[in-house]
Amino acid sequence: MQGGRALADHLTAEMAAGKLKEGMKLPPERELGERFGVSRGAVRRVLATFREQGLITQMVGSGTFVCAKAETLFEPRAVPAATAHTSPAELMVGRLLLEPLMPGLIVQHATAADFERMVECLGQAESAPTIEAFEHWDEALHRSFALATHNSFFVQVLDLTNRIREQGEWGRLKRISLTDETRKQYEIQHRAIVNALRDRDAELARKLLTEHLRQIQRNLFG
């Protein structure tokens, strides 16, 4: 049941992020089942729900495809007026207050698929050829933490965080502070956090995540 929920959450999030668009083909049922650790029957139930909602269509012999309606879930990532003037310093204060609360929920609710997504983000970030690409996967990793809580409040908080990070001032500070040395440091910290979460060690993960965020704060502002 939990794996089925993780699959449904993943598909919804990908559609809402504009990554699953009309005409795109979903992986086969067997592959989805293996990835999310659920039976093919559970996968079919999730897909049936999405089909009933008009989000996908299934054609025998061809596969499962995303319908145009899925794009109605997509919301442009414009920064809301209320957050348009949130400074990087204010953002970091908020992150330090909220993100360390997530490990407690993650160790209770995260699925194998959640951890696979974290590991995927780690690998992509470590192989990213540019600062912009690294920043993208850095954002994706922290969002994967929020998704792994299976609590929509934290997902919305991280989405808001990432919208604010798209502002020019954050990008300018990140380009100045993100040297090869600091990037390597972040990568090591990221892996340590994920390993603690996979070990279901909430206290250690909370400590490591807090240290990581404080390191970012020091690097950005001195």
Results as ranks from 00 to 15, higher is better:
Ala196Phe: 01
Leu178Asp: 01
Gly104Ala: 08
Gly41Phe: 12
Leu101Ser: 03
Thr161Ser: 10
Leu122Met: 15
Met102Pro: 02
Thr161Asn: 12
Thr72Glu: 09
Ala82Arg: 15
Gly37Leu: 02
Thr83Ile: 09
Leu178His: 00
Arg191Pro: 01
Leu26Glu: 05
Ala78Tyr: 13
Pro103Glu: 04
Asp201Pro: 04
Phe221Trp: 06
Glu181Leu: 08
Thr210Pro: 06
Pro88Ala: 02
Glu116Asn: 12
Glu31Gln: 09
Ile106His: 00
Cys67Phe: 06
Cys67Val: 03
Ala113Pro: 01
Arg117Tyr: 12
Pro27Arg: 15
Cys67Lys: 15
Pro129Cys: 04
Phe145Thr: 01
Lys69Asn: 09
Ile56Met: 07
Gln108His: 06
Ala205His: 06
Arg35Leu: 02
Pro76Ser: 02
Gly18Arg: 06
Ser144Asn: 04
Thr210Phe: 10
Val157Ala: 08
Ala70Thr: 08
Glu139Lys: 13
Arg95Lys: 14
Ala81Gln: 09
Phe221Gly: 03
Phe65Trp: 02
Ile164Glu: 02
Gln58Gly: 07
His109Ile: 07
Gly23Trp: 06
Arg206Gln: 13
Ala17Gly: 07
Gly63Ile: 11
Trp137Glu: 04
Ala196Val: 03
Gly33Cys: 06
Thr149Val: 01
Ile164Cys: 01
Pro80Ser: 02
Arg40Phe: 09
Glu139Thr: 11
Phe221Pro: 04
Ala128Lys: 10
Arg5Tyr: 14
Gly54Arg: 04
Leu47Lys: 09
Glu139Gln: 15
Gln58Ala: 12
Gln2His: 14
Ser39Val: 07
Leu147His: 06
Gly222Ala: 07
Glu135Pro: 01
Lys21Ala: 09
Phe153Gln: 12
Gly41Lys: 15
Phe65Glu: 00
Val157Tyr: 08
Arg165Val: 06
Ser62Tyr: 15
Pro76Met: 06
Gln58Asn: 11
Thr210His: 12
Asn195Phe: 03
Val93Glu: 13
Ser62Asn: 10
Leu105Asn: 04
Gly222Trp: 09
Pro80Glu: 00
Ala140Ser: 06
Met59Gln: 14
Glu116Cys: 03
Val38Lys: 02
Val43Glu: 04
Gly18Thr: 00
Glu99Met: 07
Lys184Met: 10
Trp137Tyr: 13
Arg175Tyr: 11
Leu73Ile: 03
His212Tyr: 11
Val66Thr: 07
Gln185Ala: 02
Asp159Met: 01
Leu204Val: 08
Pro103Thr: 00
Glu52Cys: 04
Phe153Asp: 07
Gln185Gly: 02
Glu71Gly: 10
Thr210Asn: 09
Gln58Phe: 05
Glu29Met: 12
Met118Trp: 08
Gly61Arg: 08
Leu208Arg: 09
Glu116Pro: 03
Asp138Leu: 04
Thr149His: 00
Ala89Ser: 08
Glu135Cys: 08
Ile56Asp: 04
Lys207Glu: 13
Thr57Trp: 14
Glu90His: 13
